[in-house]
Design a binder for these strands. Structure first.
Lengths: 138, 138
DNA sequence: CCACGAGTTGACAATCGTTCTCAATTGATC
DNA sequence: GATCAATTGAGAACGATTGTCAACTCGTGG
């Protein structure tokens, strides 16, 4: 970077607070489990807050990039979303009933980063999900 | 189950050793990283062992069920397959070129099991994939 | 050697989730 | 109110995967 004047401060384009954007965010706040984009789109329709499906996808993507929602893939490849708490974490999911527990693993974070580093990989990200059968489902 | 005579021994229908089946298995043996069904289909074509795309998918599914290949989902939801070695391990995958490194993490194994246990989850399994950009792709 | 039948295959249609296109709309700013 | 870029929505386009179904094939018994 030169010094004189450059380095544009807004690295990301401004986001406009539209009705649709607000509706999606509110919808995400209204449930605590993972939902597919289509389900969210339908939910909005029922609420009378109709938002185009494409817009739902777009918004969900933005939210995911911004780290405001978690994205997961079901076993058959469908993306499912859920609002996430502020910190990076993983999920312990019951195979039978879907009950989810958020877990943190600083050790794991460190481990993945160092392993990747050792092999010369940069820009590291990872996916970790734990599956099991919860007490109630045994 | 009653005791007298029942419990049919063959729970799974017999599999026939066809040219196609063999070709797919051989193809899987010929590389060590993850490939999509389509790539495998194409590879077969180049080898002159043409196998219908649908058949490739079907065979890959069977192999996966039988635990003979690992299935993973790329970040955009595509299924990728690879013959799997005997030991449980994870993968460090290059986002750009797909280069894969097998990594083991006894610590992670222990961690997931104990976390799950703490929350009363049994029959624990987990998925952990690390993504990054390898040195050659930077 | 041949007929037989269930398992298998392949070309193609059909799904399904997701992304793209583009004209019309909207929000912030002047 | 005029302006302009960001945004939206309807629908087309896409790409991966699965379903359909007639033709084929392997192993078996005759």
């Amino acid at each position: 970077m030169t010094s004189t004047d450059a380095s544009p401060p807004p690295p990301n384009p401004p986001l406009r607070p539209t009705r649709q954007r607000r509706a999606v965010v509110e919808a995400m706040a209204s449930f605590a489990d993972f939902r597919s984009a289509q389900e969210i789109h339908e939910l909005l329709g029922q609420r009378g807050e109709a938002v185009g499906l494409a817009t739902v996808y777009r918004t969900l993507q933005r939210l995911a990039e911004a780290g405001e929602v978690d994205v997961l893939r079901t076993e058959d490849g469908e993306a499912i979303y859920r609002r996430c708490s502020d910190t990076h974490h993983h999920h312990l999911v019951c195979r039978a009933c879907g009950a989810t527990v958020e877990v943190e693993g600083p050790a794991v974070e460190r481990w993945t980063r160092s392993i990747a580093g050792e092999h010369g990989y940069a820009d590291v990200s990872h996916t970790l999900e734990i599956f099991g059968t919860c007490a109630a489902c045994r």
